[in-house]
Design a protein around this nucleic acid. Sequence first.
DNA 1: GTAAACTGTAGAGTGAACTCTAAGGCAAGA
DNA 2: TCTTGCCTTAGAGTTCACTCTACAGTTTAC
Lengths: 134, 134
Amino acid sequence: MKIHELAGQTGLSVHTIRFYEKEGLLDSRHVQREKNNYRSYADEAIQRLKLIKKFQGIGCSLVELKEILQDHDARTRTNQQVIAWIRRKIDEIELKKQEYDQMLDTLGWMLEYRMLLETDPQKANAMLASQYDV
Amino acid sequence: MKIHELAGQTGLSVHTIRFYEKEGLLDSRHVQREKNNYRSYADEAIQRLKLIKKFQGIGCSLVELKEILQDHDARTRTNQQVIAWIRRKIDEIELKKQEYDQMLDTLGWMLEYRMLLETDPQKANAMLASQYDV
DNA sequence: GTAAACTGTAGAGTGAACTCTAAGGCAAGA
DNA sequence: TCTTGCCTTAGAGTTCACTCTACAGTTTAC
């Protein structure tokens, strides 16, 4: 598979894929070179890039990802270390979800206020006795 | 209130507060100048900065925030437009929460696998028949 | 009175993650 | 053969959100 196809399969740009390789997020299992020096990707590369996207989505930096993936590939971490890492990540995500819930509360309040403004401005003004105002 | 105190109250640095002002996120309601040219902040500034932090937390860029806040201050948007914006934001957040739930599933699976590896490696290997592998 | 701690400005620097450019080589179809 | 379009590299440029520096004036505590 050539870079353009991989880009299509993963939704990343060819630039980004080459950038990831330069940053050490892909290795010989994922990319080889053809005689003409073109990159040739294994199917594994699709999974790898999708995994990268997924972990990025939960706030892993590329550096962190590189460590995880290289450790994984080289099996340099003990099982206990990996378990600890997973638990930490789970906690982080739970926390972020809580923050989102808070924001949903705020937005829900705002929405209620704005909709009341349409139907019953007096009641809406009464809501403003509370702390939010956007 | 001077900038240092506001920084303490909000958890932002003095640099950041001045930066936000330069970017147009604060206006005369929040900052005035004393005779010596020092900035003097109203209590409203605390709320404003906390609001900025909150919205940043849900992925609003400073540019987006500036628009929202200026529109709010100038009341240039109709109520309907604001309602539409709130609904969009709510949808965005719900989506992100779903993505987080997916990641929690993945991490939960990884954790289970890694823990089984400690107690029953054979069963753990059986798990690998499924699609994840980290 | 003086030192420490604060305030101001303009503007440069930082780090992350791309994103693009230039300049050229290779491949496939009309 | 020509054209179109994909491929290569090194390296420069971009965007965001700060973060810091240099240098100077002001305030406060002792």
